[in-house]
Design a protein around this nucleic acid. Structure first.
Lengths: 180, 180
DNA sequence: GGGAGATGGTTGGCGACGCAACGATTCTCC
DNA sequence: GGAGAATCGTTGCGTCGCCAACCATCTCCC
């Protein structure tokens, strides 16, 4: 709120073009990637990304809560997502040795195989629909901008662990489909 | 040059950083904007955007199908979305004069008032979380990139009418909350 | 004019997700 | 050492969206 003068310019006169392009691009892209993945590999984009996160994790397993953070999903959402993957035999639920409250999701051989099979489709989608559309020189700018937007929205009190790489010591990366 | 990337290089070696930043930024942003709007005005982001599209349309009404296209939603999704808005008194359903099959959604006075009340919150969110995070010089680049991505995903056979502005002759724009 | 097909919107059924509430376990601190 | 608070994951319930099937109307063409 605070419709008053904010530190930045007033909200009137704001050019919404960039904002709308951003929304539009994401909506179309996410839909398309999801469709392709479902059609060819019977996996939703969310399921694919879950398998990917697991594959990248040390030991190919992750605590439920951790998964919720990195997938930007609620705890209950992850519980059900893992339920489905367990039903499909792609993931196993194991209890955490060091904390009896905790549960871990661990990738099965079948899950890894499915992930590897689906990876080319997914990566091709990213290449063809995202990178191919953007001028090569613009890519770093887009990354910087997107990173800044995401960072600006991290919980003030939260650690906002910058997901993805940069955290993993490195093991298990050779198991990951990005290179397979 | 610099990290030259063939137009369609192999999917290995692809730097997924920009892609992940993009996903991350959208996920956090959309969630945050939705939360704020709900908390303060009891409107979902989708509902807000629906009201906005109606407000911008000539006569402040739109055919259901048109709405589905511009909101990037399925027909049934729009039917139910409008159902809710009708229940809340923000929108009225009228039948189309020129085509008895058709239905139109038209903004009520109450809907317009609600939209105007919510606009400052929404615009402030865009300003604070999107524009404020991006370097001013990068904004046009982001717009160009996002526009290209979206354009690349338009149905080959479809018209992919780039809705938004550029199409409306101009009327009713003074009724829109962007300036209220 | 009238049937075949296209088009517009609604409905039933379903999947996916969030929130709040709930056990279960661990941590904290006296 | 044990009571109370914090944390972890699951479950009940409500919401939102999609797909397929459906009915109504419009269009085309014989």
């Amino acid at each position: 709120m605070t419709t008053e003068r904010a530190p930045s310019a007033s909200t009137d006169e704001m050019d919404l073009g960039p904002w709308r392009s951003f929304l539009h691009a994401h909506a179309r892209l996410a839909r398309r990637m999801d469709e392709d993945l479902r059609a060819v590999h019977a996996l939703s984009l969310q399921e694919y990304e879950t398998l990917l996160h697991l594959a990248e994790a040390p030991g190919r397993r992750l605590r439920m809560g951790r998964l919720a953070d990195s997938l930007l999903l609620s705890k209950s959402g992850v519980t059900r997502l893992i339920d489905r993957l367990v039903d499909d035999g792609l993931v196993e639920r194991t209890s955490c040795a060091s904390d009896a409250r905790g549960a871990e999701a661990s990738l099965t051989g079948s899950g890894l195989a499915r992930l590897r099979a689906a990876a080319p489709t997914h990566l091709a989608g990213i290449r063809d629909h995202f990178y191919a559309a953007i001028d090569g020189d613009d890519v770093p700018v887009v990354e910087r901008a997107m990173h800044a937007v995401a960072a600006g929205l991290c919980e003030p009190g939260g650690i906002c662990d910058h997901q993805d790489a940069a955290e993993h010591p490195g093991p298990a990366h050779d198991q990951v489909p990005a290179r397979a």
